[in-house]
Design a protein around this nucleic acid. Structure first.
Lengths: 232, 232
DNA sequence: ACCTGAACACCGTTCAAGT
DNA sequence: ACCTGAACACCGTTCAAGT
């Protein structure tokens, strides 16, 4: 009837097309917009049609997690890790920051990844690569195992910040307001906020540069691991 | 009519009673069981009655996060931190592991905390205490600020494990099965799993002791921070 | 003031029916 | 084989009505 629908129907649905659309929808409108009905609409189809390509919504979430992790793997595979030449720390740093670049394009991904209970092949593959860097760097299996745990989600380029809401500007303004109200009850935080200056020349609007803080935390862990490696 | 309802109604509803019931419900049946209708039923009341004590469900989630953080604060306040005598690392370690004990009683709490966008007073209070330990330990405001970011959720005693599903035994058995199937594609992981032995004398059933791994990661970070503090 | 029942606008999902 | 519409069992929430 409506020609647009016929056009959309020309390419038949498939698991891949469903997941691609799901990732795009989550990127554009947030993960809460990813409903069966909304996703179907995006594909010019009825909600029930999705069930022919995917068993249920949980499988869609598993799928989008896989898509993102595959993008991460594609990105890190471009890196020619020369651990022997540059050292494992530099190789790991580059790998993690590359993963982070991909993750930043999908702000909803950490939330989804953390709720997946089954290990997908792309996740296994990614951590196999991380582990490979450690082993090439001279880690024992045992220490490398601890290292994986110590890195945790940071290996994939993200940390869950408890202090930073989605909208940083609004969030920080709110935080400031709350803190000012109760400065006397929280002397350490009040002192820190007074002392840590907002550099007006700094391009970051807030007082925390996410990328710098991420790299600081990562380097603290990498250095600590290297010291333990050397200690045997 | 039914006497049970009258008994339940004797103590009138209040925000506190609602939140207490919500925490209990989440503890017993998981966070997904925490719905307005189910929570009301728990309190012997209609779902709509909850709206007289709480503006909406989001506020209930904010509230349960506050309850948990208040429990954490109560627990760490029992600790008499003698930073000067034992050093900041020991004080911090004790504080974080105490917070962890509370968090382990509410396995759903990390998930909820991470989705809160507004900083509640108990969270501010907790981090003020963490910061206090750092400052007493000789950290500059600037380095202490970085340290808060580096610790992240670990300061509250939890990390989001990407490899560990809710049911560890089932999860690990599944993981083993998957890995065995594809061992040739993931040589590093396959090697590690062969090398890192399951000690039969070890009380932990799986091959990762969560508590040990958490403490390892925490110590890596604390050591790294101490080195940076000493470096000035 | 506090609680209720019916209703509304959403979910994910089942099922029988269409092509 | 693939897609659909109606329907079901759930959500959170609004509103008018009860006490």
């Amino acid at each position: 009837m409506a020609p647009r629908r016929d056009v959309a129907r020309r390419t038949p649905l498939s698991r891949e097309r469903v997941l691609e659309a799901a990732v795009g929808l989550a990127d554009r409108e947030g993960i809460e917009a990813l409903t069966m009905r909304r996703l179907a609409q995006e594909l010019g189809v009825e909600a029930m049609s999705l069930y022919h390509h995917v068993p249920n919504k949980e499988a869609i979430l598993d799928g989008v997690a896989e898509v993102v992790l595959t993008q991460v793997n594609d990105a890190v595979d471009q890196l020619d890790a020369q651990v022997a030449q540059e050292g494992w720390q530099a190789a790991m740093r580059r790998r993690v920051l590359t993963a982070r670049e991909v993750m930043l394009r999908h702000p909803w991904a950490p939330q989804v990844l953390e709720t997946r209970t089954t290990m997908s092949l792309p996740v296994i593959g990614y951590f196999d690569g991380v582990l490979g860097v450690l082993l090439a760097g001279g880690f024992s299996y045992d220490l490398a195992h601890h290292a994986l745990h110590a890195l945790g989600s940071r290996a994939l380029g993200f940390t869950q910040e408890l202090f930073e809401p989605d909208d940083h500007e609004v969030g920080e303004a709110e935080a400031m307001a709350v803190l000012e109200q109760v400065a006397d009850r929280f002397p350490s935080l009040a002192g820190m906020m007074a002392a840590v200056s907002h550099d007006p020349a700094d391009p970051t609007l807030g007082w925390c540069d996410d990328q710098r803080e991420f790299e600081f935390g990562l380097d603290v862990i990498l250095d600590g691991l290297e010291r333990r490696r050397r200690a045997g």
